[in-house]
Design a protein around this nucleic acid. Structure first.
Lengths: 124, 124
DNA sequence: AGCACGTTCACGTGGCGTGAGGGTCC
DNA sequence: AGGACCCTCACGCCACGTGAACGTGC
């Protein structure tokens, strides 16, 4: 995702189909945090736009209010991290088993078979 | 958690500090599903009350609307299951390693040592 | 100078809680 | 018969989106 600040508020609002004032409200509630220029003009990155589109889905399609949006985004973040953890654990579990196998040498023989091996070697 | 239906609406509302009509609204939106008697009277279980208290926290303390409550409860359910999965995976990872160790017999000897074993056995 | 930016305030709509009215069950 | 249940409708409040007013930066 692209973090570079690119669009000022009118362009950003146009791109996501929202009222510029709405974007200001979202910022005042901490839902998006666009960068600012030296002259205090907001600059929205692609990541900000993506976040705005998510807010839009939650409010217009699902009917959440802004308090709900905030909590939902927090939970979705936690959920994403939990899923990442699950993927990592599954991989580590597989790798751990393989590693244990590798740590056992391939040329191991049961001690009980050693006596039967002796005759075989004497025939040489 | 106790699923047995126990309290009719006035008692349930009293117990959680809500208006009975509010409980009916929550049911109409699918947020709680109390059982009914043969005469169509709602009966709330302890689990239902717990759910009502959660809704109360989300609405009054955090300011969510009901759409938000619904989605948040869904996400919290998913999150709980993800955490359960993580716990299970961590346990399985540990057990898998132990199991691999067990599958290697304790009396294994490197094949290269077999020749050195032979003299030892001949001395008997 | 002009236009889009900034902030603050005002208005309208809609969601939600609360209550009342009227019917039904025990 | 009375009280608490059922459901539906109406009212009020608050959140949120929208716009206007006014000042500032490019």
């Amino acid at each position: 995702m692209d973090d570079r600040p690119m669009y000022m508020i009118s362009v950003a609002a146009e791109l996501v189909g929202m009222h510029p004032q709405t974007l200001r409200i979202y910022e005042s509630k901490g839902l998006v945090r666009p960068k600012r220029t030296a002259g205090n003009t907001r600059l929205y990155s692609e990541r900000d736009l993506e976040r705005l589109r998510l807010i839009q889905r939650l409010t217009t399609e699902l009917g959440l209010n802004l308090a709900g949006v905030e909590l939902v985004m927090k939970l979705e973040d936690q959920l994403a991290r939990a899923h990442a953890r699950i993927d990592r654990l599954e991989r580590e579990k597989r790798e751990a088993v393989e590693q244990v196998h590798k740590n056992y040498r391939r040329d191991l023989v049961p001690l009980s078979q050693v006596t039967t091996l002796i005759p075989l070697r004497r025939n040489h």
